[in-house]
Design a protein around this nucleic acid. Sequence first.
RNA 1: CGCGGGGUAGAGCAGUUGGCAGCUCGCCAGGCCCAUAACCUGGAGGCCGUGGGUUCAAGUCCCACCCCCGCAACCA
Length: 559
Amino acid sequence: MDKTTILTYSLTMKNKFYVTTPIYYVNDKPHIGSTYTTVVADALARAHRLRGVPTMFLTGTDENSQKNVEAAEKAGEKDLQKYLDSMAQIWSQTWKELGISFDDFIRTTEERHHKAVERFWKAVEKSGDIYKKEYERSYCVGCEEFKTPFEVKDGRCPLHPNKELQIVQEENYFFRASAYKDELLKLYHEHPEFIQPVSRLNETRNYVKDAFEDFSISREAKKLSCGIPVPGDDSQRIYVWFDALINYMSAVGYGTDDKMFAKWWPATLHLVGKDIIKFHCALWPAMIMSAAKSDELLRNEDESPKLPEHVFAHGFFTINGQKISKSLGNAIDPLDLVKEYPIDAIRYFLLREITFGEDGDFSLARLAERYNADLGNTFGNLVNRAISMSRKYFDNKVPSLASGIESTFDIQRSGHSAQQTFDGPISWGGKDAVDTLWQSVDQYIESNRLDLALETIWGGEGCSLIVANRLVEETKPFKLIKENPEQAAIVLYTLLEACRHFAWMIEPIMPNIAEEIIRQLGQDPIAERKQGIKYLQSWGGLKPGSELPEPKILFPRNA
RNA sequence: CGCGGGGUAGAGCAGUUGGCAGCUCGCCAGGCCCAUAACCUGGAGGCCGUGGGUUCAAGUCCCACCCCCGCAACCA
């Protein structure tokens, strides 16, 4: 058994997959950045569901932030809750329109979340890691914001150096994060896979080593118009980050449904943007380490804390080379894109264009380029020409194979009679190459590298869209049909069956297109899916003699 | 010395553990005619930011330097 086989095995044998996106602030509607995170999570969730792994995919909104209050005021909405409700609606609705298959949508103003936060706070408190401290904070009138000591340069705000900083005395609760420094470093050392990519692991390690300090985790209630009250102290409210992270637990029943919590926690994967890794990779595990000391629900059999398995930090998009910025007004609303391109094309573009973990650029020119080249020319055209020829030469049916499915294995065998019919070498690697491609795809999904999975499906050796197109040129079924109809049938069946495999391979990324292809191949996508992943990955699932409906163009040009 | 990312063909990017420099688009020349003016083949085009070092061998490791960008301020 080689390495890839083992990895494939582990993917299909995983007993659960719990993936999360960050919860988004509702001070604005979704843009291309939050869409990217969510689409990645969705594709991974779909990939696991397709493979029969019980899957929980969570997204939601962060509603306890002062930013939301300001946004509500700006929007002229006096009733904060009403504003939050309408914005949460916009977010979940946008995801639905983009075909995001989230299993749950959490809002941090919900009762279940408050219960979870309360339980969590009390556990941390019981562990002795919450204390009260009076301290000074600097307030910049220009920014209308408090500044951390790190942000203050020479006693002044670097952005408004001509204004005096106001020093405000305040007594808040603190979380003894510093006590978990060593345990965190040990975690990074023993489980480097906790943070991906590696560059982020290094960044986090340096941060924890040098700058990880106790966190202020509450604010005076009278200065805030939102937030969850500190249990047992109504004069203070919980700082937004401390409550926000706990959403990953409250959605799966922490504090409300122990059985459900035991089933789903710990999370398999937190997907985050690179800007919030410190919260997810340092503060969050430290919080859990603390709470776990006093809450057995958060402990494994061996008494170790139940920490999330992986945090993956992806990069950011620029728009035409510029950063996304509200002041520049270049934010892209995904719903506008959907008017010009099929949803699946947008999803493909987002996942294919960015090297996962790196920054990337979003431009309409580039989207058009990939739409026409990758989707229309390479993929859509392959499906279309394969089906068209089969219909034309075989009475609108999938060709029947006189010598059985096994005869399709012969195409790539040199020296076989089949080879003599063709002029040059055959690139098509046959059934074995299809198996190998599936293994690569599984492996890339396992490591969250959907970009590489797509790259391989399009251009890999032995079996890929490119190779399938090449097979048409090398065997010329449109000529072969006159000289050797039986061989033509073998080639065309092979092409159609390959398309069926490609469809299932890209299903997590382009679910609508995948189903459409299966239907165009005269098969029933629902019924096929029910057969399970083993069936989908096996050669020969396409039934010879099936009726082939007239194909519709999958990716029309000039969309 | 605030933190972090990057400089590879005209453009946009890949390059895992160091082993003849790749991909997509564009361009040039052929082929094919099943197909969405789509498909296939071949070609031109790179001192892999600069200067040192380690090595039989460096885009890949080490040191120094130059330039661009992100965060620190709405914003994943």
